[in-house]
Design a protein around this nucleic acid. Structure first.
Lengths: 237, 237
DNA sequence: AGGACTTTGTGAACAGATGCACAAAGCGCT
DNA sequence: AGCGCTTTGTGCATCTGTTCACAAAGTCCT
């Protein structure tokens, strides 16, 4: 989608109408599928085998019409009068999202955040495997984190090719993020998850998603402010 | 805000047409303002005093028409034929986002991620101040992080009221997130930033934004898959 | 002062996403 | 088999967001 435009959770790449036509799945739907998948996962764990769009919608925090429309993009996998088979739906969503494939992930930058990411268990689940940790600081090189040895930034290209990394996670300071990104892209990485507070410039063929604490806080601040001024504004008219 | 609906970077709370009318600022615009703000900040540091919508748009990774329309929601702060005064625009955006106010932030959960957040410098900038760290694990209570002492979860209510926390950051395991959230809400916290991989249920009056690594990865996976199948599909027709 | 040039701000067309409401489809009970 | 109940899937209206394209408004140069 992305216009040459934005990246980031929100306005996330519109990804060109073309891709939309190819997959038939709207971007807004794609962004919600992982949520459904997670909810379905816990339902399955609880022994639930069948779920209605209403129940699933409540659990996922969306409207039921929206949910049904979302699922209808994948095909007709429900049974009228009954609902959806949990296990089957999990499979279909996973397949649609491409989670039946395997993805090798490299984390660049092993500071506080990088450490947290490297240790994050949920990471490894669902086909994502961390295969490399890279840092520019020689003092951190060689350190073992979660069974992986930190490699030096100089080896980035080697490491990426060696492990056929498909997703690069940038957890470096802002100053080095663009450089790291460029190097990832030139090694053939086409998906980047960016934690650095900076807008990355990439070719159209590369997908970037950003996670940005500070932006989220500022959005919350906006609404928080609106709430505080609420009383007076309502009073005023 | 937010419909009983979604939370999270993407489909973020449509925030009811009403609020839209009250502030006059579309949600999509609000989500981009922090990006503009950041870019303007670095421009200012570089000594730039005036910037055109085109230049700013490129730096922010959006289209220039979109940027102008976004800014036009705040008022007419540009000069035709010239552009925008960087410093003045920074001020106007800050004011609009409510960053001229002060926000007290509490972080609940001081595991790997909580640690990283507590040490994150950019946090304290722009009016956000971490005033409390809370954890359920007695072994972590008392620890000093970045000059703040970790308090026990039992004291959550006390701590929140004591520091007049306006934003709660949930960095706990999924299992305790809803409980923590409920307690925050019952203490009067109306803005929550959720890092736990779970959909939080909150009253309409509370804003939740979520940051979810695993969802972002899955969205990337979807597009990555689309790219790999690209070659064959194009070949096939 | 006046004209060429630049750049903003915005009306209008378009595109995408959401929500409503209901027909179609299946289940289970008699 | 038939009837009533439940729930999906979707056409349609609506709303939100994006993009285009241009008039209005300003600067700079002569």
């Amino acid at each position: 989608m992305s216009l040459p435009d934005s990246q980031g959770p929100d306005s996330q790449s519109p990804h060109s109408p073309l891709s939309r036509r190819r997959t038939g799945i709207p971007e807004a739907t794609v962004a919600r599928l992982p949520v459904y998948l997670r909810v379905l996962g816990s339902l399955a764990e609880s022994g639930v085998t069948t779920v209605s769009s209403d129940a699933l919608a409540v659990a996922a925090g969306v409207g039921s019409a929206k949910l049904r429309k979302d699922l209808s993009h994948l095909g007709s996998y429900g049974t009228r009068g009954v609902g959806y088979d949990v296990e089957y739906l999990v499979y279909q969503i996973s397949r649609t999202l491409g989670l039946t494939q395997h993805y090798s992930v490299a984390i660049i930058g092993v500071g506080n955040l990088g450490h947290a990411l490297a240790n994050y268990a949920g990471f490894a689940s669902r086909g994502f495997q961390i295969v490399a940790l890279v840092d520019a600081d020689p003092r951190r090189v060689g350190e073992q984190i979660n069974g992986l040895e930190v490699r030096h930034l100089d080896e980035l290209e080697t490491v990426v090719k060696e492990h056929e990394v498909s997703i690069g996670v940038i957890a470096t300071p802002a100053a080095s993020a663009q450089d790291v990104c460029d190097r990832l892209v030139s090694c053939g990485v086409t998906s980047v998850l960016n934690f650095a507070p900076i807008v990355l410039a990439v070719p159209d063929s590369v997908d970037v998603r950003k996670v940005d604490l500070s932006i989220e806080l500022q959005i919350l601040a906006f609404h928080e402010q609106r709430k505080s001024s609420h009383a007076s504004e309502v009073g005023a008219g």
